[in-house]
Nucleic acid binder design. Structure first.
Lengths: 205, 205
DNA sequence: TGCAGTTTACATTCATGTATGTATGCTTGT
DNA sequence: ACAAGCATACATACATGAATGTAAACTGCA
């Protein structure tokens, strides 16, 4: 019995994406068939092929639902708090990122992108990861340069190295946690690591 | 034309593993068929099925060729240099690790494990990664505790946090680099990041 | 000659894409 | 206002190709 109205159709589209997200997360992208996804959403493959061109198209649609650019996170911090130090803004944005990635939806998507998909058809997850990372890196470097000009960084700590260090640490933290969320708490140990790193980088006479 | 002697058979086994390594690296594990691997080694699937039970078995054999435990790296450093500070030993071991992972063989295997395989049949790459990481983490924590007792760590920097920080940074660095080795040099920027982190953690009156 | 090593041939499974069927909603002419 | 006709939103059926595993045939050393 087909859904008819526009709203209902949109609902099944979302249901299919939700289903894909869960099944991808549980079984990996390569191992899940469109049949599995459809069944998990209470539909058949016909519905999938109606809403999406193919598996790759569905995958793109999945990622589009959760993308959160770095710059927006910085802006968000600046809007909601009144710190004027770039280092503090950056630190809060990082903590913010950790919190976001704990949300089930965001967490599943990132886990899929990082650990549960290889390249297939026209999709290269490594390129996607790279885009995210480089964008993030650029934003961080800008803040660190600003902090450097203000003399807020430890002497002999170049903005470039600082941004690479933070980038690596954050990336590693998220990788590790997504790989096994039970191993440690992002909100406790994770924040502690980030705060510690900033404390080490900040110049205090 | 079948290979006959034991040595020749062993050679084709290695050739098959080499082929698998390359094709897995280029196309991902899921997307490569045993046929592709065999052809790439100048053989047919029959040879593969003679030497390995199936794809999963071949995959295990691949990983077994390059495993390098953390403890051994620490021992290696202690043997070849004469530093008595745990922090220095640790730092050198890390730099050592960066150098090792640049070797084509090691680099390909790790890239496959981190970025080019999802779970399939009885294989769960995430578990394998976890084993490596936890083992490494335990070793680092031990060294940091020792350094802490000797008063070598910055005040307010707990050994646990320090080890988590280093672990995350190293992991992130390696992830980032393996994802796109052209983006930066492990030997230059990578070492610089590690050295900087140790400089920040070390206590110097 | 027997057997380790390798090829070839074959049966099976399974996912994909597409074509077709169909029921419902929407629109338009009157 | 209300059918007729068309578009939408699916389900079903089928054709295809690709990968797997296995069994049987082959080949040359021992």
């Amino acid at each position: 019995m087909p859904r008819r109205t526009k709203a209902e159709a949109e609902a099944t589209r979302e249901a299919l994406l939700d289903a894909a997200e869960e099944v991808f997360y549980d079984n990996g992208v390569a191992r899940t068939s469109l049949e599995q996804i459809a069944r998990h959403a209470g539909m058949t493959r016909g519905a999938v092929y109606w809403h999406f061109k193919n598996k790759a198209d569905l995958f793109h649609a999945l990622l589009d639902r959760v993308r959160m650019p770095f710059e927006e996170m910085m802006d968000e911090v600046r809007d909601t708090t009144d710190v004027d130090s770039p280092l503090e803004t950056l630190r809060l944005a990082c903590l913010n990122g950790l919190t976001r990635i704990e949300q089930p939806k965001s967490r599943r998507i990132h886990a899929i992108l990082l650990h549960r998909c290889e390249f297939f058809s026209d999709i290269n997850p490594l390129e996607m990861q790279n885009r995210l990372v480089e964008e993030c890196q650029a934003g961080m470097r800008e803040q660190f340069r600003y902090a450097h000009e203000l003399g807020l960084l430890k002497p002999h700590l170049s903005p470039d190295t600082a941004s690479r260090l933070l980038q690596a640490t954050l990336g590693g933290l998220i990788h590790d946690w997504l790989r096994n969320p039970e191993r440690f708490s992002l909100q406790e140990e994770g924040r502690e690591v980030v705060n510690t790193l900033f404390r080490l980088m900040r110049y205090e006479p």
